[in-house]
């Protein structure tokens, strides 16, 4: 997976101001991100596109508005569903899971995704 998503030096903004590196888990897998950045940004930087599947039609959703308005990016964070990851700061040790309808994606599917390399 392409990990060149983080801008190292920006021509206008210079080096982005970022928090320290912390670890968190995504569907049980350890990942790292910058403390304080929205969870969705850490996931995006790690190449994760799908945040949840809709309840009725089981369609994938990911970041859409990035300002907390559309709810497309909600996930299960530390066991709590419907957390808007685009406005939730990342903290050390967070447990982030793909949301399936209103619950975490069942274990086998999440694991399968991981094995597929689709995450």
């Amino acid at each position: 997976m392409d990990t060149s998503e983080r801008i190292a030096v920006h021509p206008i903004l210079g080096v982005p101001e970022k928090g320290r590196q912390v670890q968190f888990t995504y569907n049980g897998k350890t990942m790292s991100g910058c403390e304080g950045e929205p969870v969705a940004m850490a996931l995006k930087a790690a190449g994760v596109m799908v945040h949840r599947y809709t309840k009725k039609r089981h369609e994938p959703r990911g970041i859409f508005c990035a300002i907390g308005r559309c709810t497309d990016c909600v996930m299960v964070v530390d066991g709590v569903p419907n957390i808007r990851t685009c406005v939730t700061p990342l903290a050390e040790g967070m447990d982030v899971r793909t949301q399936d309808g209103v619950t975490p994606l069942a274990g086998d599917k999440a694991d399968k995704e991981e094995a597929d390399g689709t995450i």
Partner: peptide, 17 residues
């Protein structure tokens, strides 16, 4: 598929392409 505002938020506020 993202909004233009989301693109700006990602790259200009959070340093993410």
């Amino acid at each position: 598929v993202i909004g233009a505002g989301a693109a700006q938020t990602m790259m200009n506020l959070h340093g993410i392409r």
